[in-house]
Amino acid sequence: MAGGGATGGSVQTDTYAGARGWLLLPAWVTLGILTLAPLAIMLVYSFLTKEFRGGVIWEFSLDAYDQFFFDRGLFGDAPPQIEWTYIGIFWRSIWQAGLATLLSLLIGFPTAYFIATRPEKQRALWVFLVTIPYWVNLLIRTVSMKFLLRDQGPLNEGLMALGVISEPLTIVNTNLAVQLGLFYSYLPFMVLPIYAAVERYNFALSEAAADLYAPRWTILRRILIPAVKPGILAGCILVFVPSLGSFLAPDLLGGARNFMIGSLIEEQFKGNAGNWPFGAAASMILLTMVLILLIVSARQSQKEAR
């Protein structure tokens, strides 16, 4: 077709069709052995019997899932009741990750919008400013957050020196600290997709709405936000998913009372409480939740695209 010449790149891209097997082989071998196979083996391990000092005995068992969902008393002979401990930890993780996502959205949306409406030459610099901290080691960022927020930390000292508060605020080891930590960990994931969506947004739509007597905030609510919804959805997913399984922020900022999935799983593979099949089962449950979420959101964005 004549149209093919105009777009060039989109039509004829089979230059290396003959070599595609060789080009893909390294990726398939590496990821097949080091990502796919481990996930499959993890699934197998979740159905095995635990060995007491870590590891497994190769005997089929549903104990791990049973332990996760049911309480059969201290000796395992009481009538089964729903075990709320682990479901509770999962629920708290979802809740914490959800609040962290909300916090990221509340701060990330105006930031992304503000950046996207800067003159074109300044935008890259603003995006860069927002993303730099992401490239700093996550552990160091979390430790820094803890250092800043702790009871005798600079934040409390500063606020007391200014006379805003008389007693230090307890922030570390609270839910808020975890949410702040998660927000800090994944904020760029919220800002970047929203930024990209707003940048593509056609502001003539806002002008048309204003022309039809819509005030500023109505335009935001009725025109702009629906138009950039795919970006917002992507941002929420990108923050929520890693928050759900995060380990560092709850471990360092949350303390023992704010246990999340990540810590629960980690504990199964460290020290003496180790229960590998249980850890594998908890990981499988987490993975299933995340994959369902990703599939649903992909369906959703596909529907929106139509």
Partner: peptide
Amino acid sequence: GPSGCGKTTLLR
């Protein structure tokens, strides 16, 4: 020919 007539395809 007009676009889509096959002239570029023939050339390619």
